[in-house]
Amino acid sequence: MQDDLLVVGFDLETRREVHIAEGPPERWKRLGYGGTGQLVCFYCFHGFEAPAGTRVPLVTRGRLGGKVRRHFAHPPGQAPAGGHGPETVWHITTKHLLAAWARSRPGADCVRLEQWTEEHDRRADVEVLLRDGTKIALEAQRKLMTDDGWRARHRDYARQGVVDVWFWRPRVHFPHVVLDEGLPVWFYSVSKREAATSLGRPHTRAHQWWQAPDLSVFGLHHPPCALDELERVTMPLAALGLGPGGAVLPEHLRKRVLDSQGEAQEEAKQRKDGEARYARAVREARDRAARAPAPLPPPPVPAGGLRCEVCRRPLDPLLVKNLRHLLC
């Protein structure tokens, strides 16, 4: 099922967006096409590819566990020509799925859609308040942003103590300044209900790499650095955790990252220990040399020059140690 075939509902009575995962299909059938008609297409009603105020009651299709996931759809013949824009569908649907995911996380205390920051300069797609007081903004970004545009939003959030977590539409280029700021990049596929991110591959172990202040980059690491080679990993959205730092990798991926970093740290320790042993051996050799007695001065040279103690003939200086010729 493609993302652009998905539809978000709008409840004319409660005046809010509705996603199919928020209730049983029997409820939506009662409120949609053939029922009260108060469940209409959000996009048509708000003027996307149709005149604003257009009311198209929705039908419910698919079934739990079936080949096609449950979803809202227009009745036959009542969809706009060409359907709704995939970017619009992705953005609205992703907001609701992120909100539902956040509500299901153990540490979440309050989750609200389309909330302004305290300074009223930024509006989060989904605002999450954790029980420890951390405020998180979940952003569903459907289009490419400039570096300056993204950095301005990120720093506005940071200034107000808000942790911003960005989920990008698949195949959309993201600003690499995100990695420069030390944030991970998340993607979300509505049709697959699947999140994706990238791990940074281990950095090249150049000369004396074990002396680097941060050894984690010599194993798999998340988030990656801006110029890293990347390894893409995918997971169900439900497998992600949510904590004070934002979205959290599933346990099996966290273990894989930590194991990789542990191997690099162990090798670095062995290298440092080897360096320390060598330095200690050099120091001990110098200490022994300093403590050794001074060599005895050479014997005085007789007035007549050096002579063999046996034959008394002149002795070459090279033989002075033995005090005799080789054949004497």
Rank of each mutant, 00 (worst) to 15 (best):
H46R: 15
G85N: 14
D147C: 03
F187I: 03
T93P: 00
G66I: 00
H203P: 00
I92M: 05
E87Q: 10
G182R: 02
V233P: 11
L323F: 10
E139T: 04
I136R: 06
R312D: 09
F45A: 10
T14W: 07
H91C: 03
R324W: 08
R280E: 14
P76E: 10
A226T: 05
A99Q: 12
H19C: 10
K255S: 11
A140C: 05
Y157K: 01
K29P: 05
V282M: 00
R277V: 05
C328I: 11
R151A: 12
Q160D: 15
T117I: 04
R205D: 15
R193F: 08
G85M: 04
A124F: 04
T94M: 08
L39D: 11
G53Y: 06
W116R: 13
L249T: 14
G85V: 01
H120W: 07
P224S: 08
R105L: 07
E139Q: 05
P202N: 03
P202L: 01
G305Q: 14
H203N: 14
Q261L: 00
V128I: 03
P202I: 01
R61V: 07
R288V: 00
D121P: 00
P86M: 05
A73L: 01
P106E: 15
R256V: 04
G32H: 05
R254D: 08
L5K: 12
R16V: 01
